[in-house]
Design a protein around this nucleic acid. Structure first.
Lengths: 134, 134
DNA sequence: AAGGCACGCAACACCGTTTGTTACGTGAGC
DNA sequence: GCTCACGTAACAAACGGTGTTGCGTGCCTT
């Protein structure tokens, strides 16, 4: 994956965790499986922890674990936890001086928000426990 | 605007052109109004020309003009002409080895394609002549 | 109590993409 | 023929994202 790499990493990791929720995984293990760096893993998973999807523990038998039942975590939860809007995000907050630009912006923003809602709604239809091929 | 800057520039320019379709505009004029560079304008508008939305002429009274009636050009036409998918694009084409990843990718891709269609459908509902505040 | 392990976090380098800029060529018109 | 405006390539600059290192903190094992 390339774009949405954070979302991909998060979904991939959580999907695996859904297969064996009690098992504790270190960021090193996850990083190796995902072909990336432990720090990157902690960065992404930290957001999920802040959203209450994961818990992390330090120390010898530390690592990461699901904070909720896999059936209760939907793809939308993960998407929202990362707080990066795929369709809406990236709009600057500068008010356009040009009236045409203003009308245009309003129209486009309306469409994007609608589409964003659609995306979230569709993502909320599947949980991370459903996604596994096992 | 920031992200989707190409789309913003394209829509903004075409919306203005819709107000006076017969008038010829130079890339320098457009660039000044949009706060950017003439070359950037030509780059973006070139794609629209390739899609048959605009025509350009060289020489003294040269510049850019709509190639179709403003009522016939929808926001979706502009979006598609730029060929940059907002929601779908960016996915790498590498086949995932991990089975969980594969199942996940399939599921997410399905949702994204659905949302992309929704976006195009919504954008096709308004033409560039409707968007003006005049 | 000490050492090791794993997370938490900040700082920095690196890379790819996007945007801006310069330069030069081409065609149309005065 | 000269000017104007597009067409395109090449290059520089800015930005965002990722990878990496380093150090601190807490917890567990011995």
């Amino acid at each position: 994956m390339k774009r949405n790499s954070r979302l991909s990493l998060a979904l991939h990791t959580l999907s695996h965790m859904a297969g064996d929720p009690s098992r504790m995984r270190t960021s090193a293990d996850i990083a190796e499986h995902a072909g990336t760096n432990p720090v990157v893993v902690r960065r992404v998973l930290g957001r999920l922890r802040k959203a209450g999807l994961l818990t992390s523990e330090k120390g010898h038998s530390g690592g990461w674990r699901l904070a909720q039942a896999p059936e209760d975590i939907t793809l939308a939860d993960v998407y929202l936890a990362l707080d990066e809007r795929l369709v809406t995000g990236g709009d600057s907050d500068e008010a356009p001086a040009c009236s045409v630009e203003k009308a245009l912006h309003k129209r486009v923003t309306g469409v994007l928000e609608d589409v964003e809602q659609r995306l979230i709604q569709r993502l909320s239809e599947t949980s991370i426990s459903e996604v596994r091929g096992n």
